[in-house]
Design a protein around this nucleic acid. Structure first.
Lengths: 157, 157
DNA sequence: AAATATAAAGAAAAATATTCTGTTTTAATT
DNA sequence: AATTAAAACAGAATATTTTTCTTTATATTT
């Protein structure tokens, strides 16, 4: 069902998206191989863009960013140039970590991480509502998070 | 405003959440330090849980998972034991990568990544709707994604 | 089956992570 | 302000890991 990835490649991707600090030796042992082919496969997966980047995942709450909010937004205008400008503006807000154009009850769904409710209100008042053509804005405040990962399901590819 | 993190710590966190493959030497050079203190600070940030894990970020679309959907859900019952069971069940679905309990128009907001609309319909029919006490289910299908990162804003901590 | 291309193994080299020791800086205490 | 204790740092030595290179095996094509 997949592209140019064989089983070994998807196994490597699965391992690395779970823990990217594994050594090639440890991966090779798990797969019953030696380091060279594993190393070359990883480099190929990077080179061809299957692996986009390697990152450290931080503990938001521990660092003081205790509030996650999803914001559903409708716009009043829908010209192409305005939509593009909207996304550009959103990209400049470091509090916004995701911005999706969606179908359904909203035009856009944003995900935001800030310190607390105060910081959130400040963002709404001094940043978000300054954008033109803004229609309805609906906040979904996260009370608790039961699951939060980037690990995508590779079992069907 | 932060906890036990000084400026150097937050700089290190900022660097690593952007690219965790940077060498300690390269980080040390950027900060005007030597490798030992940088190495020790990173180990401390890991040990104390500010850094939760290191992961490879994959290109979903390239791998064949082309569809991201946000699902707003209301439940008909809200007993503690049921809510817990709901989250447990959700955790067993590898398609669901996020599950947040929220205030607002929904009880839960889920994020799901699958191959295509067909796979999504299959998930809804054969997995999600089998859960008891399910109330309203509203899908927000992602048309395009303007921003998607894990990098949280460390400038105010 | 021969020829060619692809993937893997194994060993060697280069780079990096990790540990260790001694020094400096910082902070706390008197 | 001087003394002491604790923490952070620098620099060098060691251990691991990554990366490269050469050879061998496997698969594909003609």
């Amino acid at each position: 069902m997949a592209y140019n990835l064989d089983k070994i490649d998807t196994q490597i991707l699965g391992i690395l998206q779970h823990n990217s600090n594994r050594t090639t030796k440890s991966i090779a042992d798990e797969l019953g191989m030696t380091t060279s082919p594993v190393f070359e496969r990883i480099k190929k997966l990077e080179r061809e863009g299957y692996i986009k980047k390697y990152v450290a995942v931080l503990d938001n709450k521990k660092i003081g960013l205790k509030l996650t909010v999803f914001i559903g937004i409708t716009l009043q205008g829908h010209t192409r140039s305005y939509l593009e400008k909207f996304v550009t503006e959103i990209n400049n807000f470091p509090e916004i970590i995701e911005c999706h154009r969606v179908s359904g009850n909203f035009d856009y769904l944003l995900k935001l991480v800030v310190e607390d409710i105060e910081a959130y209100e400040h963002f709404i008042i001094s940043k978000l509502t300054l954008l033109p053509y803004l229609g309805n804005v609906q906040s979904l405040i996260t009370l608790s998070t039961g699951k939060e990962t980037n690990e995508i399901d590779l079992s069907n590819i």
